[in-house]
């Protein structure tokens, strides 16, 4: 009895404290206090839907489009890699994109990676080897910030997993640059600060990255695909999906096999269970 009495007293006390000291002031403020200020940028943000036709790897049966991944790699190499690292990806991984071993060797050698002079032990540079990882464009975070208006360009290895709906986000961000509607901006007192760029798909719509894909034809694709801005954005978003999750397609394919097996096993388990219980069940009616 005393536990219950104590419980009732404690429960009423907690509720009283919560209602009188937390809820009541909150309700009062909500009803009579000033409306909470919202950042003017909220009026401009739009969720990015990604490319119109989606990606080849979308859905439970999705597959890589290797030509697209190779084009995306080309966009990364010629555009993004000036500022963004890809530190968890090694050149040898490029073989997953459909390059042959010799092509990977050549591709690795086209990059310059930090090395050590075998004679003097001094730091130097050398051509990359397949086992090397993509080099860092800046020697450290301070150098990266200093060269980029105080905004450190994030590593792109995992970018599509580190953002909500990442593949679509990357596509939308690359194609979301433009101007804020001037009338609307004047009304809410919004302006893009100097050194930043308006991008309706960036969470606070002012991004430090200058539009990286500025003109159609910026990259000349080796396979002859017309390099419009949406095309380049789609391809590099696909490539960055691969860098973030190289096992994506293998994972889905394994998944179908595993689930198929489990369905079979579960049906058998159900039949076995029903048969074991059959003798115990009351007859209907």
């Amino acid at each position: 009895m005393s536990i219950r009495l104590g419980g009732i007293i404690a429960g009423l006390a907690i509720t009283l404290v919560l209602v009188l000291w937390s809820l009541a002031p909150g309700v009062y403020n909500f009803a009579f206090g000033p409306a909470p200020e919202k950042q003017p940028s909220y009026a401009f943000y739009e969720h990015g839907e990604g490319p119109a036709n989606g990606f080849s790897f979308d859905g439970a049966f999705g597959k890589w489009d290797y030509a697209q991944l190779q084009r995306g790699y080309q966009v990364y190499k010629e555009v993004c890699s000036a500022c963004h690292s890809l530190k968890f990806v090694a050149f040898r991984n490029l073989q997953d994109l459909g390059y042959t071993e010799a092509e990977v060797d050549a591709e690795a050698a086209s990059w310059t990676v930090p090395g050590i002079d075998p004679a003097t032990g001094e730091t130097t540079t050398r051509p990359g080897e397949p086992t090397d990882y993509f080099p860092m464009p800046f020697s450290n975070a301070i150098a990266a910030a200093a060269a980029n208006n105080n905004a450190i360009p994030p590593d792109l290895s995992l970018i599509t997993k580190a953002r909500h709906d990442g593949s679509n986000y990357v596509y939308s961000l690359l194609t979301g640059y433009g101007e804020a509607d001037p009338a609307k901006a004047a009304k809410v007192g919004f302006e893009t600060p100097d050194g930043l760029y308006f991008n309706k798909h960036f969470p606070n719509v002012n991004i430090a990255m200058a539009p990286p894909l500025a003109v159609d034809g910026q990259v000349t694709f080796a396979d002859g695909t017309a390099s419009t801005i949406p095309q380049m954005a789609t391809d590099v978003a696909a490539f960055l999906t691969w860098t973030a999750e190289p096992s994506l397609v293998e994972r889905k394919q394994t998944g179908w096999f595993v689930i198929g097996f489990l369905l079979f096993a579960t049906v058998l388990a159900f039949l076995s269970y029903k048969q074991i219980w059959a003798g115990l069940k009351p007859k209907k009616g």
Binding site: F261, A265, S272, Q275
Partner: peptide
């Protein structure tokens, strides 16, 4: 004869 279902279920579970 009616035990086959238990044998099948157990062997499938074993394989899994």
């Amino acid at each position: 004869r009616r035990d086959w279902i238990h044998i099948a279920a157990l062997s499938t579970a074993g394989v899994g």
